[in-house]
Design a protein around this nucleic acid. Structure first.
Lengths: 336, 336
DNA sequence: TTTATTCTCGGAAACGTTTCCGAAAATGAT
DNA sequence: ATCATTTTCGGAAACGTTTCCGAGAATAAA
């Protein structure tokens, strides 16, 4: 009685296998009474159609794969939750994989999901340069993919993005308007477009107000990196008047070190973060930060994907750019 | 040329399907030269064995499913990363699903993974009471499962746990030793064993030092809950001398509100958290907290699961209890 | 009552593999 | 040179479904 199959049900009722199948997929002709009988005894016997066999046949699984670089920070989990909300609603199940920032495991992850015949993929790249021919092949082979957050422009797929340039500009502008001069940008990992865009926004704000562009320090997105940078600044006696960090984590890390060395925020160093983490409002002082619409990113990515899955064939790739918000808090306010 | 199958390869080389199969699974007799030739042309043709078909036949997938209640907080992601480290090493791929604290979706998630024929499951329950007959059935049907963090004792499976009682006792003891009297415990969700154990530890510490047991307030694990509780304390003028929170999130939330209302930490209210989140060390003041060995939890869960998968049949369920650490920081130190 | 039409259902092929069985070819022993 | 053994491979069944095709029964039309 290990695994009860469709044959067992058919045998028990003295009907054919195809009739049982028809009872479960109500698009075929079957008498109501027989259908009910089959469904009833099938349930009694504990029969569940084997989705693996079904997949083999119809190349369709109602599973969606999501692949993200990491999920220790709350950004990606929040996006995933948003996507799940719309996908589960439509009867899809969501399989999540984590690339650990490595493009090799990312590739393996994607391949596992493709092998498992997911109906579509939602991906944020771990690296924008490494797997591109692989993805190109996947895309031309017509499997629905939506990229978000970290994408490569050239891919002919739907993408959902954040206007990093604009919001980096706003964030920097906010500091400039407050009267801060010597502003340093803690930039993210070098090879990402979003890093470049945030840098460009940082520059543009300076130019807009005819200020000399501040220094840029690449240190990635981790809290430890922010701590190290701040420490070095203190050691070299080169502490800037204000900092615009490309992530909340680096902002928090830096702030922590500054405070430990007796500097006040924002009196000695003003700080603005990016990517509104859950903690930004709960540090002391609370950190001004650019808020990304994480849930919305997930939802629209999912919607774009479903659109593509359902209109297979006549489909036009879309790029949607979502709006953010600058949450102004104590860490950046110039108390004159 | 959409999907190239084993037949295509066989036809191209004028060999039988079984020979091609043999080339890919090297446990069968095949001449080295033919094998090499097949592998070479298969690669050229872009053939990859279809794992769905393979699964249907051998009921084995080299996939492991992990189901957690949530992953916005870093606890579960860290555990997952630990598990992934050992599983990927052994050639398994990891499929992750998130139950959103709901036992219905948890059940659906588990079923999806089982349907996809994962070789084993690592689960942290969203609720310890709701799906138990379902899990009982799963367990007796012999699919390898390891539970962690939130488990039900009765299940005859391996479990990896944290000694919540002991560490809650230590944490409370730490407060008592510092001389604090009126200590309140912000407890977690009511129906969880870990909540009960932390409460018991809280009580035991008081009894050990012959103190009247402090108040217990159930408020779950979320930051917002901590804020609300603190607010209510202030409004009712019932702010305790010290707080032992069942999660860092509630501890941080409460601390934030206290500070906003002019109270100093730890001078007015001392605070200890639980589950050492990434932020505990970076709040101000830094929060004393019980650190759980997240990575280790994941690793041992994975190892127990692999053991069970490999020795199918002769397998004895194990319960492993891991050790933690109390990170003492400013928030709880009594500066006399 | 005969013929045409509609309802139900059974049979069988198909999805892409693995694996058992046996046959032919190659090798070794005598 | 003959027989026994090993190596290498092809054929076919199996995994659990869906779905096309057609047959028989039931109903409607004539």
């Amino acid at each position: 009685m290990e695994h009860v199959t469709i044959k067992d049900v058919a045998k028990k009722l003295n009907v054919s296998v195809s009739t049982v199948s028809r009872a479960f997929n109500d698009k075929y002709d079957i008498r109501k009474e027989t259908k009910d009988l089959i469904l009833k005894t099938a349930k009694e016997m504990g029969y569940r159609p084997n989705p693996i066999a079904k997949k083999l046949l119809q190349k369709r699984s109602f599973n969606i794969g999501i692949v993200v670089p990491e999920f220790v920070n709350s950004f990606f989990p929040e996006v995933i939750i948003g996507a799940q909300e719309v996908l589960i609603e439509k009867g899809y199940q969501v399989l999540i994989m984590q690339s650990d920032q490595s493009w090799e495991t990312e590739r393996k992850n994607v391949q596992v999901l493709v092998d498992n015949m997911v109906d579509g993929l939602i991906i944020s790249l771990s690296s924008e340069s490494k797997n591109s021919t692989y993805y190109q092949k996947l895309i031309t082979s017509n499997i629905p993919i939506v990229f978000f957050n970290r994408v490569v422009e050239e891919f002919e797929t739907s993408k959902v993005l954040f206007d990093d340039y604009k919001w980096a500009l706003f964030a920097t502008e906010h500091l400039i308007i407050q009267g801060y001069k010597d502003i340093v940008h803690l930039a993210g990992t070098k090879n990402l477009t979003l890093t470049k865009n945030r840098m460009k926004g940082f520059e543009a704000a300076h130019k807009k107000y005819k200020q000399p562009v501040g220094r840029v320090i690449h240190c990635g997105f981790k809290m430890e990196a922010g701590e190290q940078v701040a420490l070095k600044m203190i050691e070299k006696n080169k502490v800037p008047r204000a900092i615009f960090a490309a992530s909340d984590a680096t902002a928090i890390g830096a702030m922590h070190v500054f405070k430990k060395h007796g500097l006040s925020i924002p009196e000695d160093v003003a700080i603005v973060g990016f990517s509104e983490s859950r903690l930004a409002a709960h540090t002391s002082p609370p950190i001004t930060s650019v808020e990304q619409p994480t849930n919305d990113i997930g939802q629209t990515a999912a919607k774009l994907l479903l659109e593509q899955i359902e209109n297979n064939g006549i489909f036009v790739p879309q790029t949607i750019i979502l709006n953010g918000r600058l949450n102004i808090r104590e860490s950046s306010i110039n108390i004159v």
